[in-house]
Nucleic acid binder design. Structure first.
Lengths: 200, 200
DNA sequence: GTCTATATCCAGATAGAC
DNA sequence: GTCTATCTGGATATAGAC
């Protein structure tokens, strides 16, 4: 083990080391392709510690799930706290999500890309969690105050964020090869003004 | 085993019975939560037959993957063959996808919702498969002939189909409770004309 | 609380009769 | 080609020393 690694381990709590390692492995290989031993080895902790701290593999996944959800919630709250208009709030959210897809790839991947129901069957689906509700609420507010065209709430939310989320998926799958912020301005333009060529 | 079941089994080839059963189980429980024995029991075939026909669990998944991809390809081709304009082609595609999400739920779920890379690591990602390329091509054509606003190809495709795909995901997750065709008209309006309220 | 060594279980895969 | 019975590896989880 390198000196750098030792330093890093000393600076991180054992819990964090387990969670960080698990996040990397789950995202890279998929939950069911990762064994407790894999996590144990890569995190340089004993298997006993893992069972003491989290009670098992599913315990790790659950802790991780709530951890990344709370990070997501922070992100949404940081935008809401600015009290911008609805449209501008959505834009900031998309900008932050695009940036974090590049800088915090695995966190975003675990929130937006993982199929939690498969390994955490008891938990509610992500999209019904608070940060996602908050995103839909922002759109709702915009419709109420006339910033955003009136329409069905699901349609509105899917249209505002659907394009961005689709691009995040494609980026995480390696299909899009440029960093997402490259597309930010252009995406906003078509999202708000539409795809149809203006007549006259 | 009921009389109806026997009739159904007699009318289906053993291959189809295995694939149909596997599709249902994979979608409902997730690939790794389904054992070969589960498939074997529910399809009323012996485990030996499964290994003879598909060589194992991964063989089933691979066959299924190409099967549903070809169904998806048919769907796209059926629209392309009509030689409509680009915008109208996209609309028809979305309409068909919405309808099939209700009538062929598991097929759509396996194509659009499953994480194939986790259990078929050798296969290319779905979104790089032909039907998805064809969808992007339709959008491209529309930009070339002036039907659709000029912009980055990824942004355009994500915006045209992103809202629809997002709604399909939400529907498959049980978050949206109404059948998707309900939203068809409204979705098209905002997709093409945008979300921003017109000035004046 | 942390570790190693071990127990238990069940999945995928195979063997060999028919 | 189809079946049942069986093997084997590897996973989760535990026991018990330190």
């Amino acid at each position: 083990m390198s000196y750098i690694m030792k330093l890093r381990e000393a600076s991180e709590s054992i819990d964090r080391r387990i969670l960080n390692t698990a996040l990397d492995l789950f995202v890279e290989c998929g939950y069911y392709n990762v064994s407790v031993h894999d996590i144990q080895k890569q995190a340089n902790v004993s298997i006993g510690s893992i069972y003491n701290h989290f009670g098992g593999k599913e315990g790790i996944a659950k802790a991780l799930y709530y951890h990344v959800l709370s990070e997501m919630e922070e992100l949404v709250n940081s935008v809401v706290a600015q009290k911008l208009g609805a449209v501008e709030s959505c834009n900031q959210l998309i900008r932050l999500l695009f940036e974090q897809t590049e800088s915090q790839r695995n966190t975003i991947s675990f929130v937006l890309h993982a199929k939690h129901r498969e390994f955490l069957p008891e938990e509610p689906p992500v999209c019904s969690a608070t940060p996602f509700k908050a995103m839909r609420d922002i759109v709702q507010t915009g419709m109420a105050n006339g910033e955003i065209r009136q329409c069905d709430p699901w349609v509105a939310a899917a249209n505002v964020f659907g394009g961005a989320i689709r691009m995040i998926h494609l980026r995480l799958d390696g299909v899009i090869e440029q960093p997402l912020p490259t597309f930010y301005e252009e995406l906003l333009k078509v999202t708000w003004q539409g795809m149809e060529v203006n007549q006259g």
